[in-house]
């Protein structure tokens, strides 16, 4: 089976790990070989959380620079930082709602311009889907559902060997009962956003 390499970058607390687990769960139930790894050392203290998921016939659980087929960024500047993982054939999906790192607040860094950021990513990769996932998460009923919105967009691109149904089933299994409806709605909103070519 063809190998597909997915990288997800986020800021601690954005729910990247849950999104990754849902993808893993969906793969497990669809009998798609998948392995993943995560780096979350100081995630709760505002650091970057990165997960890598490798589908298909490969043994590695990590992805080298320039080798991601798909890259999902939960935060725009982190998507830009992850550009070194991409190549000219990579499909990139990014949230456009910034969470400026604290270094910006204390004047030790400048947050990149969002238009320029999109132009740069678009120029160096195959395709960019970019939209404000926070707006859609709120529309779904919970700002915390940003991860499900982006998961919906990711699945719409059909870059992964996973059907929307299998992912939705995994969402039902892995999220708390109270959040299932919101999460599924967020997933649909993200799916439509990608479909409408954001």
């Amino acid at each position: 089976m063809k190998t597909t390499r997915l990288i997800i970058v986020a800021v601690g607390g954005q729910g990247n790990l849950l999104a990754s687990r849902i993808i893993g769960e969906a793969a497990l139930h669809s009998n798609i070989p998948a392995r993943m790894s995560e780096i979350h050392g100081m995630a709760q203290r505002g650091g970057v959380v990165e997960s890598a998921i490798v589908f298909g016939d490969a043994e590695s659980t990590i992805i080298s620079d320039g080798e991601a087929d798909v890259c999902v960024g939960f935060e725009p500047s982190e998507t830009l930082r992850a550009l070194k993982r991409c190549n000219s054939k990579t499909v990139v999906i990014t949230n456009l709602a910034p969470l400026p790192p604290f270094t910006v607040a204390i004047g030790r860094g400048v947050y990149p311009d969002l238009n320029k950021l999109q132009d740069l990513i678009r120029a160096k990769t195959a395709r960019l889907i970019a939209f404000d996932a926070v707006v859609l998460a709120k529309k779904a009923g919970n700002i915390m559902a940003v991860n499900m919105v982006l998961l919906g967009s990711l699945i719409q691109t059909a870059t992964l060997p996973l059907s929307p149904e299998s992912v939705k089933e995994a969402i039902r299994k892995r999220t708390k009962t109270a959040f299932i409806e919101i999460n599924l709605k967020a997933f649909e909103l993200g799916f439509s956003a990608a479909k409408n070519g954001s």
């Binding site: 800021v11 050392g41 100081m42 709760q44 203290r45 505002g46 650091g47 970057v48 080298s64 620079d65 320039g66 080798e67 500047s77 982190e78 830009l80 930082r81 550009l83 070194k84 991409c86 190549n87 000219s88 400026p100 790192p101 604290f102 270094t103 910006v104 030790r108 860094g109 400048v110 947050y111 990149p112 320029k116 740069l120 160096k124 990769t125």
Partner: peptide, 22 residues
């Protein structure tokens, strides 16, 4: 042939995101 890495010379410096006390 190693993977062709994207040319990042025109990417502005991205502010660091070090872990911080909560």
């Amino acid at each position: 042939s190693p993977p062709v890495l994207p040319d990042l010379s025109d990417v502005p410096e991205i502010p660091q995101r070090p872990p911080n006390l909560c």
